[in-house]
Computed example of a mutant assay.
Amino acid sequence: MTTTIDLVSYEDALASYDPVMGLEVHVELGTKTKMFCGCSTELGAEPNSQTCPTCLGMPGALPVVNATGVESAIKIGLALHCEIAEWCRFARKNYFYPDMPKNFQTSQYDEPIAFNGYLDVQLEDGEVFRVEIERAHMEEDTGKSLHVGGATGRIHGASHSLLDYNRAGIPLIEIVTKPIEGAGERAPEVAKAYVAELRELIKALGVSEARMEQGQMRCDVNLSLRPHGREKFGTRSETKNVNSLRSVERAARFEIQRHAAVLNSGGTIIQETRHFHEDTGSTTSGRVKEEAEDYRYFPEPDLVPVAPSREWVEELRAGLPEQPLARRNRLREEWDVNAHDMQSMLNAWAFDTLGGCIAGRGARHPPPAWGVCGCG
Score class of each variant (00 low, 15 high):
164 D>V: 08
25 V>Q: 02
164 D>R: 07
253 R>G: 11
254 F>H: 14
103 N>L: 13
75 K>A: 06
25 V>A: 14
202 I>D: 01
222 N>I: 05
43 L>Q: 15
91 A>L: 04
71 E>W: 03
136 A>M: 11
223 L>M: 10
330 R>W: 08
21 M>G: 07
141 D>R: 03
28 E>Q: 10
100 M>W: 01
229 G>C: 13
70 V>G: 02
63 P>N: 09
370 W>F: 07
139 E>T: 12
80 L>I: 01
336 D>P: 01
124 E>P: 06
87 W>D: 02
371 G>E: 09
160 H>V: 01
187 A>F: 12
224 S>P: 00
186 R>H: 13
88 C>M: 07
151 A>K: 14
264 N>Q: 11
353 T>N: 13
196 A>S: 02
19 P>H: 03
157 G>T: 09
209 E>H: 10
43 L>M: 15
3 T>D: 12
265 S>F: 05
23 L>H: 11
29 L>G: 00
370 W>A: 15
206 G>Q: 02
11 E>F: 10
266 G>A: 06
100 M>A: 09
286 G>W: 01
287 R>S: 13
129 F>H: 05
370 W>L: 14
155 I>W: 04
239 T>I: 08
355 G>N: 05
322 E>Q: 12
219 C>Q: 07
74 I>N: 14
62 L>I: 12
1 M>Y: 09
281 G>W: 02
341 D>Y: 07
239 T>A: 01
122 Q>S: 09
125 D>K: 08
94 N>E: 15
188 P>W: 09
95 Y>V: 11
93 K>R: 12
200 E>V: 05
145 S>Q: 03
255 E>Y: 12
271 Q>C: 04
90 F>D: 00
8 V>Q: 03
343 Q>V: 11
341 D>C: 04
323 Q>M: 14
198 L>E: 09
265 S>V: 05
93 K>H: 03
248 V>M: 04
142 T>G: 07
46 E>A: 12
324 P>K: 04
51 T>N: 06
326 A>H: 10
282 S>R: 14
